[in-house]
Amino acid sequence: MLSSYLMVAAILFCIGLYGALVKKNAVIVLLSIELMLNAVNLNLVAFSKYGVVPSLTGQIFTLFTIAVAAAEVAVGIAILIALFRARGTVNVDEYDEMRR
């Protein structure tokens, strides 16, 4: 049973990865990152039930992850809005400050 959960998480992670690296819209990139985080959460909870040492610790960690992800989304959207005001676009490929 464990491997089935892990497989779903892997699929989810890879789709999220693909979206994060391909999509132009910065909001969608953020969404894809959320997908990847959720895949991790799924792994944690699955191991919490079927792992070598089953315990509730995995669930506690998932809780923390969710809290951090929530904070991340909030800050990410805020940065996005600030960037949008400055540059007038949300296209990721137009953000190339690192080249300069």
Binding site: L31, N41, S48, L63, I66, I77
Partner: peptide, 28 residues
């Protein structure tokens, strides 16, 4: 067997994060 987490997931992700994203989409 993680009922509490399921509720948190629905509240935080399906509720808050999705709404936040929609706000982000609208504001940009």
């Amino acid at each position: 067997n993680a009922e509490f987490l399921a509720f948190v997931q629905v509240l935080v992700y399906a509720g808050a994060v999705s709404i936040l994203m929609i706000f982000g989409i609208m504001m940009t």
